[in-house]
Structures are given as C-alpha cells and as structure tokens.
C-alpha cells in the first residue's frame, strides 16, 4: 500500500485496558481483568484495518478504548497527531466528530423513542455539522447515502428490519462527517445476504468519503472481504499484523494458522489439514506467563513459557509475535 508513506490517522501505542474486580467487605480492588494488554498499531487515512480474534480476546474493548467509551488504563492514542487521552471532557466531545462507531446489535443501538429523523437531527445538532435550516436536506442526503427512502424519516426504529436499522446506524455515524469509523461487529448480527449488502455499502461509502475503518470482527470471511490490513488478537495481545493478502496466503503465527484452517471451504474435494486447538482460552485474570498462547500452541517450546515474544518483521508488511518465526 502506498499509504505507508503518509501521515498516520490513528496511532495507538502501548494501549492497556484493565477492568478492576472488586471484592471483600469494603469493595477493594482485588484483581484486574487484563482485557487489552499493551497493544500498538496504526491506521492510515482511507484504509480498513480489521481486528480479528475469538470472543473475549479484547477486540471490542480496543475499539471502545480508542473512542474513550471505556477509559483506557494506560497508553497513548494519537489521532491526527493529537493525543486523545490528554484531552479534557469538552475538547474530547468536539473531537468525537472525527471518530464514530457502528455497533453490533441494530436493535439496541437506536433509541426506540426517537424517529429516524430525530436520531439524525440530534447527531447534526450535537456537532453543528450544518446550519439548522439545512438539517432536513442533509438528513435526506444521509438516508439516500445508505440506501433508505426519504419517508423513513418520520418512522420509529421498531418499524425497520435489522439490516435497515444498521443502515440508520451508519447514517448516524456519517452525519458528523467522521474520518474514522470503528465498526464493532457491525454485520455480525445480520443475515448473510444482508451482511453482504451492508459490507458493500460500507465499501462504497469509504470510497466516497475516504473513510478509515477499524473493523472489529470474529468472522474471517467478512474480514477478508473488507480489509486492507488485519490484526490478529489473542487474549489481549496482538499476535500478528499483516496485509490482507499476505496474512491469508501465508499466516505465520500458529494461532492465526489455526484460525485460518477454521474457514469453511466451498469445495468439498479439496482436503486441508485442520488445526484443532485443544483446551480453552485461559482466563484474562491470570494470563499465562511468557507467550500467552503457549498453553494451547502445538509447537510450544521451553522458551515460550518464560519470555513473551516481541513483534518481529516477517515480510515487508507482515509482523508476528512468535519465538519460532
């Protein structure tokens, strides 16, 4: 990608999010769930970076921490060179114009007591995107952009299907003209046919407005369809970052390979070695020492139990955190 030479849009460095667990009589903090533990990555303007991983690996938490919906424990988030974590409440609210989010559950992400028009009007009013006299016009434009009819404006969310509601959610995010949209499992709750429509819509909007996406998903098929680069997470850490082509053609980390081998193949005659991982994901309360994957890794050696692997280059656009590479 030619973007490598450009200014990064979002630079995440050493991001950590620990959730305290309180216990005892006085509600002292007794432990931490290390949901996201020291991760760093970059997103360039107009690109789609995906985070994949299984449930509980910290991918959604990463998205929420970047948006400061959950306050990160440590780390630095630079957006266009501005450190978001240093901003005050008021400045952050203004900054939110540039960072938007689309949620997973289209039934929970719209206020049931507002019409679609009110939902979009509110977004326009909060960030004062256009003067008041142009609200209606702008709302029409937003609805058209996401493939909804203009008469949807006066209707309530419960009158729409899941796919339509997700479009409304996208329109709300677009209303403030953001530069980056965090798509948190944005299509996971939809039927496969609707998924494809919404993904294509996202791609179309990306071209039109030069949006960058941080696309959080557990579905490798979806990720393959939409991403430029892919981040693979396991138990709060990044295990591999690569260009989409490079990652899918040549996965390096044993965990990534196991993930890849779980994608169903359309052709029954092609036989592939299926890598089955044994055991469960360890608890993020007490992550294993050394490489977090060593408890389930078929190739683990003594070193893996002792030393956490660093990110290493495994190609021009490919990095991996494994001692064996």
């Amino acid at each position: 990608m030619a973007e490598a030479a450009k200014q990064p849009l979002l630079e995440v460095t050493g991001l950590k999010k620990y959730f305290p667990i309180k216990g005892g009589v006085f509600g002292r903090v007794v432990q931490h769930v290390k949901a996201v533990d020291d991760i760093s990555f970059t997103i360039y303007p107009g690109e789609t970076v995906s985070i994949v991983g299984e449930s509980g690996c910290g991918k959604s938490t990463t998205g929420r921490a970047i948006l400061r919906l959950d306050e990160p424990t440590a780390g630095e988030i630079r957006f266009n060179g501005i450190n978001l974590l240093a901003l005050g409440k008021r400045e952050m609210r203004r900054m939110r114009k540039d960072l938007q989010v689309i949620f997973q559950d289209p039934f929970a992400s719209l206020n049931p007591r507002q019409t679609v028009g009110e939902i979009l009007r509110e977004a326009l009013a909060i960030q004062q995107v256009v003067p008041k006299s142009q609200y209606t016009e702008k709302i029409m434009e937003l609805l058209a952009n996401v493939g909804m009819r203009p008469d949807s404006m006066d209707r309530y969310p419960h009158e729409f299907s899941g796919g339509q509601r997700q479009r409304i959610g996208i329109a709300r995010a677009l209303a403030v003209e953001p530069k980056l949209i965090v798509c948190d499992e944005a299509v996971s709750a939809l039927d496969v046919s609707i998924q494809a429509q919404v993904l294509n819509l996202l791609k179309e909007l990306q071209r039109k407005y030069r949006l960058a996406y941080l696309f959080i998903s557990h579905d490798l098929g979806v990720v393959r369809h939409i991403s430029d680069r892919v981040i693979v997470m396991y138990l709060g850490k990044i295990v591999e970052v690569a260009d989409k082509q490079s990652l899918f053609a040549n996965p390096q980390h044993p965990y990534t390979r196991a993930l890849m081998s779980s994608i169903p193949l359309p052709d029954r005659r092609v036989k592939r070695e299926r890598i089955l991982l044994s055991g469960d994901v360890p608890s993020p309360l007490h992550p294993p020492a050394g490489c977090r994957f060593h408890t389930r890794c078929p190739y683990a050696v003594a070193l893996c139990k002792e030393k956490a692997p660093e990110m290493k280059a495994a190609g021009e656009t490919h990095q991996v955190a494994c001692h064996l590479i």
């Binding site: 929420r64 948006l67 919906l69 952050m92 609210r93 203004r94 900054m95 939110r96 114009k97 960072l99 938007q100 989010v101 949620f103 997973q104 559950d105 929970a108 992400s109 719209l110 206020n111 049931p112 007591r113 507002q114 509110e122 977004a123 909060i126 960030q127 959610g169 709300r172 403030v176």
Partner: peptide, 24 residues
Amino acid sequence: EYVDAVRALGASDFIIIAKHILPN
C-alpha cells in the same frame, strides 16, 4: 448501545440523561 452511540457523537451528559435515559 444507543447511549454509547450518542456519547460517541459527543453529546453532553445532560442531553444523554434528558433525551435518552429519562424517556426510557
């Protein structure tokens, strides 16, 4: 999620409470 969505839009606490929490 809709409360998070409005928060992500940059709404003040007052708007979130008055328009999104109280009516519901």
